[in-house]
Amino acid sequence: MADLSQQEWEEQLEKDDNAFILDVRTPEEVEEGYIPNSTNIDIYLGHDFLTEVEKLDKTKNFYVYCRSGNRSGQACAIMNSIGFENTYNLVGGFMNWEGEVAE
């Protein structure tokens, strides 16, 4: 897992042809807006979060975010523990995101 600043995350994501953007926030938080092309799997689902994450392609590079960067850090650690090699946590999370936002 790598913690990336907002700028590093955005720059790296732009150049990455193998990127998968994962939003681990709650559905209520997602309603407030989200990073375009992201997939939402709520980390608070517990075991169901793990079940859903297991279905993802482990060869992808995962750019993970939440509201502040805490839950996404936990999600990256969980993902690394089950065989995901490339996970990138967005430091500061969505609340500090200055890039494009979809509604």
Rank of each mutant, 00 (worst) to 15 (best):
M1P: 12
A2K: 15
A2Q: 13
D3I: 04
D3L: 10
L4I: 04
L4F: 04
S5G: 04
S5F: 04
Q6H: 10
Q6V: 11
E8W: 03
E8R: 00
W9I: 00
E11Q: 14
E11V: 09
Q12E: 13
L13K: 10
D16M: 03
A19D: 13
A19V: 03
A19N: 12
F20H: 07
F20L: 10
I21A: 05
D23S: 06
V24S: 03
E28K: 13
V30M: 08
V30L: 06
E31V: 06
E31Q: 14
E31T: 14
E32K: 15
G33K: 14
P36G: 08
S38D: 09
T39L: 13
D42C: 05
I43Q: 07
I43Y: 05
Y44M: 15
Y44K: 14
L45V: 07
D48L: 11
L50Q: 08
L50P: 03
T51P: 07
E54R: 14
L56V: 04
L56N: 08
L56M: 07
T59G: 10
K60M: 07
N61M: 00
N61S: 11
F62I: 07
F62W: 03
Y63E: 01
V64F: 01
V64W: 00
V64P: 00
V64S: 01
Y65M: 04
Y65E: 02
C66E: 01
C66A: 10
C66F: 08
C66M: 07
R67I: 09
R67E: 14
R67Q: 15
R67G: 14
G69A: 11
G69L: 07
N70V: 15
N70P: 07
R71S: 00
A75W: 02
M79D: 03
S81Q: 12
I82F: 11
G83N: 10
E85N: 15
T87C: 05
Y88W: 02
Y88R: 01
N89A: 00
L90H: 03
L90C: 04
L90K: 00
V91M: 03
G92H: 02
G92D: 11
G92W: 00
N96M: 12
G99Y: 04
G99A: 05
G99D: 06
A102V: 12
E103I: 15
